[in-house]
């Protein structure tokens, strides 16, 4: 499964297939266990509100990792992403039981050397951007 997308087939502006990721408390509890990040703001409503948050919020690393799947699913090669950076601008608030929805779109923003491209993502939840300037450098075929 080398990158299935060829550098020659994309242009600046090429859009990646958008994806929508539902986030429930259950996902956060599982992610806490799987990642080793047990900060109670990610699973304990009482604690989260005491420190001034509106409710339990998703792990930033969870949102970050979920968002980049728009890239890895597009190129079909999880090793194609070579750099990835985000700002955690606004937390993904995950109320119980309804949860939240993270919507991700992406497009090729720049063609780089060595058959690499820069993909800029737009990551929103509850009609607001939750990640600031999420960018991935992607190795294409």
């Amino acid at each position: 499964m080398a990158a299935s997308i060829s550098y020659d087939d994309v242009e600046v502006g090429t859009e990646l297939p958008a994806q929508t990721f539902p986030v429930k408390r259950e996902n956060l509890v599982r992610y806490a266990g799987a990642s080793g990040d047990f900060n109670p703001i990610h699973w304990n409503q009482r604690f989260a509100t005491e420190v001034g948050l509106p409710d339990v919020i998703a792990h930033g690393m969870y949102t970050m990792a979920e968002a980049v799947r728009v890239v890895t699913d597009w190129v079909e090669d999880p090793a194609a992403v070579v750099e990835y950076s985000v700002k955690f601008t606004r937390p993904v608030v995950v109320p119980d039981p309804e949860g939240a929805v993270v919507e991700v779109t992406g497009k090729v923003a720049q063609k780089l050397d060595d058959r690499r491209v820069r993909v800029d993502l737009t990551v929103t939840s509850d009609a607001g951007k939750v990640l600031g300037v999420p960018r991935a450098v992607v190795q294409l075929a």
């Binding site: 900060n39 420190v51 985000v86």
Partner: peptide, 15 residues
């Protein structure tokens, strides 16, 4: 006493 993550940048040299 409170903590929140604000930025993350990662590079992946190989899997």
């Amino acid at each position: 006493g409170s903590v929140v993550a604000t930025n993350c940048e990662q590079e992946y040299m190989r899997p």
